[in-house]
Design a protein around this nucleic acid. Structure first.
Lengths: 152, 152
DNA sequence: TATAGTTAGTTGCATATGCAACTACTATTT
DNA sequence: AAATAGTAGTTGCATATGCAACTAACTATA
């Protein structure tokens, strides 16, 4: 068997991997430059804010932001230490812990959003027209299935 | 100003970010499962092997694999410690250091390739036809410009 | 209801990454 | 040629991540 990729295949794979890497690096740098925490904090806060009651089990949270349980646990530690979230016991399942966004956390997310929005616009959306955005959706949903409700 | 993304914009952005994240996680897990080092090692070894004389200045290497200089330096430390690369002084610019792939490094890359190839095929290429791969190339090259020669 | 198996979350340890400061050199300006 | 600015690479320190082992609680089975 000739395990070799064609030129097209190669370029598609490399493009797929590196384009995301480059764009995300720019986004994270912009957060840093503004004195903000990294994108992962934003992601987490957003999921909490979207969730009913501003709270989620750590398990669910991890699935949403694609982070393993120990990383969720520690990310929450950092956010909790700074007062952006708090933990609450889970009544139905006493093993479980809810992460709840605090007013301070909401405020942080609100301040981060314009920066994030600017990055997305400038480094991603501005490069494509609507038809192309639909292609991107279509193509990426072939790879994985996400559940996306609303986002801002 | 209403800084809000449309549904299309949101789905495109999330899809773009998360699809790559998910696929790369699978790829890296497959390396791990086979007892291999992570993708970053493969990437580095590949660049060296492609380069003339099997060697590159650390600076150039960093640009190719999108890694900052201190990370290149340390990644090379790890590879060097295991004998997959060695460092050589640079004659023209005595500040510089060449990283050179060793026979052992080539052997490692060769053993990693079938695993990598399988992952790319299974988790990426198999989901698209040629027209779609071309779309991916086209779309990702809008975001960043890469120089890709050959790849395997 | 006792027992075994599973799941949610945390923690110690090893490794990886980021930042800033540092050394050693090259390039530029006067 | 001396002084200054810039570049390549390394390193100490702080933080982030991954793995495996752990606790505590839930679930299924006999």
């Amino acid at each position: 068997m000739r395990q070799k990729l064609s030129v097209i295949e190669t370029r598609a794979w490399i493009g797929f991997v590196k384009s995301q890497q480059s764009v995300l690096e720019i986004v994270d740098n912009k957060f840093k430059a503004g004195g903000f925490p990294p994108l992962s904090w934003y992601d987490l806060l957003l999921e909490l804010e979207k969730a009913k009651g501003g709270r989620l089990r750590q398990k669910e949270l991890g699935e949403l932001i694609l982070l393993s349980k120990y990383n969720v646990s520690r990310l929450l530690d950092r956010l909790e230490k700074q007062g952006f979230i708090k933990r609450e016991p889970c009544e139905e399942d006493t093993r479980g812990v809810f992460a709840v966004i605090t007013p301070k956390g909401k405020k942080l997310r609100n301040k981060m959003w314009p920066v994030y929005y600017g990055s997305i616009k400038e480094n991603f959306l501005s490069k494509f027209n609507e038809k192309e955005l639909k292609q991107i959706i279509w193509l990426s949903e072939r790879l994985v299935q996400f559940q996306i409700s609303r986002f801002e």
